[in-house]
């Protein structure tokens, strides 16, 4: 992992197009939680809301699409300035089905 240039202490990420504040060194999940969001995904079976559960990368509840990549565990991904997060419905790949 090469060390990226240090981002400033506070910056913005976007969640479904909305700006959300994030802090240097904070996980994307923490930034989402701090913005008052408790869920950012719905299951593909019953459409049940999912957010943060284990917080340490084990449960895979907290999946979201980050910078175009679906099913990222946002509890493990550190926020970077300009990160774009999209909440997920279903598999995270649903736009691609045939």
């Amino acid at each position: 992992m090469s060390t990226p240039a240090r981002p400033p202490g506070n910056f913005e990420i976007t969640v479904d197009g909305e700006p959300v504040p994030a802090r240097r060194g904070q996980s994307l999940a923490a930034a989402l939680f701090a913005s008052g969001r408790a869920s950012w995904r719905r299951t593909r079976g019953d459409g049940r809301p999912r957010g943060l559960f284990c917080g340490i990368g084990v449960c895979f509840d907290c999946l979201a699409t980050v910078n175009g990549i679906p099913n990222v565990r946002v509890c493990l991904a550190e926020a970077q300035p300009g990160d774009t997060i999209h909440t997920q419905e279903g598999t995270g790949h649903d736009a691609r089905g045939c």
Partner: peptide, 20 residues
Amino acid sequence: DLPGVLTAGGAQSLIKAQDT
């Protein structure tokens, strides 16, 4: 499985490692 239900360890890591 409701949002807002976390593991105890998950809650602790939010405080300790995320200040959230």
